[in-house]
Design a binder for these strands. Structure first.
Length: 325
DNA sequence: CGCCTTTGACCAGCGC
DNA sequence: GCGCTGGTCAAAGGCG
């Protein structure tokens, strides 16, 4: 879990379906070559605090609540999109890959923590567990093989759908599936991605479900690998943490994670998100000289022949990058 | 012992 | 209605 190794490059992509997929993307070098950091504009505290820039958004930004959903909404024009903005299922019903989405909930204009602290959110979580618990109890009660008891007593009420938490997906080029983000996660499930030729986690085409281990924190995340490029890990966060990163107890990494002012890792980062804090402005039009060559390399790696999961997102992104060359 | 992962099963939603 | 799929649960087991 924590012994994972980072690759030389990380690419961070934030997707939104309505906007041809990508709302932000960044690629940045790993600590093996710290020099590029000096060539890449860092995110200033001011930018961090007063303006949402999807191109500079990171796991940490999101997890730490630095990203205001209101700003996110404005940036993405999510006001007209209140449902899941990306579906992994194409028109034929075939899955082309995992879910990558930035989802605006119906209440997206709320503050970053509102979705967490709101009663609706809690109710949603409770409802979820409660519902399942009820069913579980029924199941437990029918160990004698009485199948009917499984499905009786279905309260058929609740016509209204439970609002989903806002979701944000990140694409990260990494060899490890579960990227360290400063929080503690508990895996609660795993599913083989449909149509996956490799239904086993070892081969990366499984979707893992994690839940924040902190009590009262309903944040979940899904981790899966891209069909097209197994080196790309797609991490989808749902909800926002209502607590500080527990990584504080595990070294200075959390200090940097929790501190948006942090812009230069002393002695080299040990957490991916420390690097994510350094996300460069890849949208830097006209001045490609500031782009690290690795960026382009990574982008091209993202462009894979078999359009599936990323077909809606990667090509436009890659094209844009190529046009900048 | 506590925390975590694994894993099979279940349920709801959705498309046909 | 049926089947598929995503999401979740919880027992069992592993690990430090």
């Amino acid at each position: 879990m924590s012994d994972h190794r980072a690759r030389d490059l990380y690419s961070l992509n934030i997707y939104h379906e309505d906007q041809s997929g990508i709302i932000g993307t960044s690629t940045f070098p790993m600590s093996t070559d710290p020099s590029p950091f000096h060539q890449i504009p860092s995110v200033t505290a001011n930018e961090y605090q007063h303006g949402f820039d999807p191109m500079n958004m990171s796991f940490t930004d999101y997890l730490q609540g630095s990203v205001d959903y209101g700003a996110l909404e404005r940036a993405l024009d999510l006001s007209r999109s209140s449902s899941e903005v990306f579906s992994s299922i194409d028109g034929t019903g075939q899955n082309t890959g995992g879910a990558i989405e930035t989802v605006g909930s119906g209440d997206i204009s709320a503050t970053p923590n509102s979705s967490i602290s709101s009663s609706s959110t809690e109710a949603a979580g409770e409802e979820d567990s409660g519902k399942s618990k009820k069913n579980r109890q029924q199941k437990a009660g029918c160990e004698d093989g009485n199948e009917m008891s499984k499905k009786v007593n279905k309260p058929k009420k609740k016509p209204e759908k439970r609002p989903r938490e806002p979701r944000v997906a990140f694409m990260t080029e990494s060899e490890v599936d579960h990227l360290e983000d400063g929080y503690r996660w508990r895996k609660y499930g795993q599913k083989a991605v449909k149509n996956s030729p490799y239904p086993r986690p070892l081969f990366g085409h499984c979707r893992s479900y994690y839940r924040c281990t902190s009590q009262k924190c309903t944040v979940k995340k899904r981790v899966e690998r891209s069909f097209q490029n197994p080196s790309i890990v797609i991490t989808t966060y749902e909800g926002q943490h209502n607590h500080h990163s527990p990584a504080t107890l595990r070294g200075n990494a959390s200090r940097m994670l929790a501190n948006p002012m942090f812009t230069s890792p002393p002695g080299g980062p040990s957490f991916h998100q420390e690097l994510l804090m350094q996300v460069p402005r890849t949208s830097n039009q006209g001045d490609t000289s500031t782009m690290h060559p690795h960026n382009l390399t990574t982008i091209q790696q993202l462009q894979l022949p078999d359009y599936g999961l990323l077909q809606d997102m990667v090509p436009p992104f890659a094209h844009r990058q190529q046009q900048q060359q």
